[in-house]
Simulated scan of single mutants.
Amino acid sequence: MSAIGSDTGTTLDNLFGLSGRVAVVTGASSGLGMGFANALADAGATVYAAARRLDRLAALAADNPRLVPVRCDVTSDEDRRMLVDRCYEQSGRLDVLVNNAGKPGPPHAEDETVAGFASILEVNLAAGFHLATYAATRLPEGERASYINISSVIGLVSTAPIGGASYAASKAGTLGLTRELAGQWGRKGIRVNAVVPGWFDTEMTDGLFGNEKSAGWVRRNTMLGRGGNAGEIDGAVLFLASDASTYMTGQTLIVDGGWTAR
């Protein structure tokens, strides 16, 4: 592997490799979360892939020996603590946390219910906060960690008629939470950053790209003229998880084909 700066001897493996590291990815049974889990494992990490659908996680782990499937409902405090504790019991550490689990809400504000709005915020915002907080309490003094929160372009700009009030609130809240936790935990050795995906063809965006009207709307409003392809956001998560970003915290990394820059 070629050196990056011959005076330091830093290599790409040193910068981006995750050998010996332990990671957690929530919402890993499908979509972007599945890609994140595989990318971190391919970089050398042991990845605890967490989701409610254990059968899908088991199938994922069958193809990648570095993946450890864990059934976890992120809205359950018991499950969250079990997930973190299992990392320490089995692997002795937790270096990377990717808060990816989430669900969409209704697109029209008038269709939101009190219970439904609260449910979206619980899954998309509160669950990741509580998981990160517990992980932070378990981090040994002197150790470092990287926490990565997955937001959305819907948390940055209006995407009406697609999006939704509760989802937008949860994803905008994720960005504010990222900055605040970065400020509180930076001197403890914990970096906290956010990744903002644009439009990717996943289970959560089911129907968006299969409909020519909505697919055309994405193409017209994205600088690159298309939606994101599988794997095109994995590098951003790998960058934030690795030593390539050790002087980066409290930041938002946008991977949207230019959607929010137009």
Rank of each mutant, 00 (worst) to 15 (best):
I120P: 03
N64E: 11
S166Y: 02
F36E: 06
E89K: 05
D7P: 01
N38P: 10
T26R: 03
I162L: 11
V114R: 15
D111Y: 00
A127T: 09
K188S: 13
R86G: 04
W185E: 06
G186C: 11
L18V: 04
K103Q: 15
P65H: 08
E110Y: 13
V153Y: 12
G5V: 10
G231A: 10
D95P: 00
S214W: 13
A168D: 10
V24L: 04
L83H: 06
W259M: 11
N124T: 06
V153F: 11
S119Q: 14
R226A: 07
L83K: 04
F117C: 04
D7C: 08
L240D: 02
W217T: 14
A50T: 09
G163N: 07
G235I: 07
M34E: 15
G228Y: 01
A41Q: 14
A109R: 09
D243S: 10
L175S: 03
F200N: 06
L181M: 12
G155Y: 12
G198V: 02
V157T: 15
V237T: 09
L121R: 01
G105A: 14
A168P: 07
L177E: 01
P197G: 03
T113Q: 04
R220Y: 08
L97Y: 03
K103N: 09
P106W: 13
R144L: 13
D13L: 13
T46N: 01
V96R: 02
G9K: 07
A244W: 06
T202K: 09
I233E: 04
L32K: 11
D7F: 13
A261K: 07
D79V: 05
L18D: 04
V74S: 00
D111M: 03
L224T: 04
R187N: 12
A194W: 08
N64M: 00
F200A: 07
S91E: 02
V114W: 10
N149M: 07
N211C: 12
G35F: 08
F209C: 07
L175R: 10
F117N: 01
V157D: 03
D63T: 15
A62I: 01
F117W: 05
V98Y: 03
R219M: 09
L238V: 15
S76C: 09
N211G: 14
R220Q: 13
F117E: 05
G216K: 11
Q184K: 15
T202F: 06
N38R: 15
P140D: 11
F200W: 04
V98M: 01
